[in-house]
């Protein structure tokens, strides 16, 4: 286990380093220096010169690369081209909002998805199973930002039940919860179907195993077998998918935050892309990649702990 942990963590760090190099190279491979691209064609030479100095573009390239790495390791991701504020400050300000949104969306989707998946296994081949199969595919197929726009139209504009924009007023939990309902619905709904299907498939795989047959021979009810014995094993692949699915939750969040003008990583990076605010875009991408790698690595380690067979993956080479 220790060896697996070390190898898995080492791989994640290596991945992050390659991503950092790729991001840095990308900025330099395009024609024109980042300062003039960021400022646009109408920038005065004086303004440009100032930005070049501020971004450290006048220094030799090896020095720049070194600075980039040294700063990133110390948590300095550079400064906003326009406001001069540290990039990390802005990220840390926006990140909790996105984390809450993703967490709530995933939370309700997980509860409902696992429950529906279990029911589909208990009554497999029945009407609910068929209906759920069809519904889960449609749920996956409908883009979350379209759901977000339709939900906004119906529940915020027509019925006026819930707020259309923002994340609620600070300190007022009630308004914050109300502002969360529609966005988390739009992100979570696609996951309900996906998780239900996944739980169903991995559970059916488990259902043929010897210990389930034993439980059945002992006369346990189908419901008890599913919830007590099959779910425990079937949850492992679900965990793996959830960790990898963080990426798609994040992209859903980017769109949904924009639709609801909700402060978060999505609205932050979209406004930065529109203004070609390099340091902010690169910093956010790097930060989220690091976070994503952390989640995936942590999930892999948890899975390896739960299922010893996984650890052998690295052993064969």
């Amino acid at each position: 286990m220790l060896r697996y942990t070390a190898k898995r963590t080492g791989l994640a760090v290596l991945n992050l380093l390659i991503v950092m190099v790729a991001m840095y190279a990308m900025v330099f491979l395009v024609p024109g220096d980042p300062a003039s691209v960021a400022l646009g064609p109408r920038a005065t030479p004086a303004l440009k010169a100032e930005l070049v100095t501020r971004m450290g573009l006048d220094q030799p390239i090896w020095r720049q690369v070194w600075n980039f790495f040294a700063n990133a390791v110390q948590g300095n991701l550079g400064y906003d081209v326009w406001s001069g504020r540290p990039v990390l400050d802005q990220i840390l300000e926006a990140f909790p909002n996105t984390l809450i949104l993703g967490g709530v969306a995933l939370g309700w989707a997980l509860v409902l998805g696992v429950a529906l998946g279990c029911l589909a296994v208990v009554w497999r081949g029945g009407v609910l199973d068929t209906l759920l199969g069809l519904l889960s595919v449609s749920m996956i197929a409908v883009p979350s930002f379209v759901i977000a726009i339709y939900a906004l139209l119906v529940f915020a504009v027509w019925l006026n039940w819930l707020p259309a924009i923002g994340a609620g007023t600070a300190g007022d939990i009630g308004s914050q919860v109300r502002a969360l309902i529609l966005p988390s619905f739009a992100i979570g709904i696609t996951w309900v179907g996906y998780l239900a299907r996944l739980v169903r498939a991995s559970m059916l795989e488990v259902m043929g195993e010897a210990h389930i047959r034993t439980a059945r021979a002992f006369g346990l009810s189908e419901f008890r077998i599913v919830t007590r014995y099959a779910l425990r094993l079937a949850i492992i692949p679900t965990l793996a998918v959830l960790a990898v699915g963080f990426g798609s939750i994040l992209s859903a969040a980017v769109f949904v935050e924009t639709v609801f003008s909700r402060p978060g990583i999505g609205t932050l990076i979209i406004s930065a892309v529109a203004k070609r605010n390099y340091p902010l875009v690169m910093g956010t991408t790097l930060f989220m990649t690091a976070f994503y790698l952390f989640i995936v690595t942590a999930a892999d380690l948890v899975i390896a702990r739960l299922d010893p067979r996984v650890r052998d993956v690295f052993r064969g080479g």
Partner: peptide, 19 residues
């Protein structure tokens, strides 16, 4: 693997910013 470890949408946005 490193390419896959980038959250898809952020990677897309970063490339769009540059190009």
């Amino acid at each position: 693997d490193s390419l896959a470890s980038l959250p898809m949408i952020l990677f897309a946005l970063a490339v769009i910013t540059v190009l």
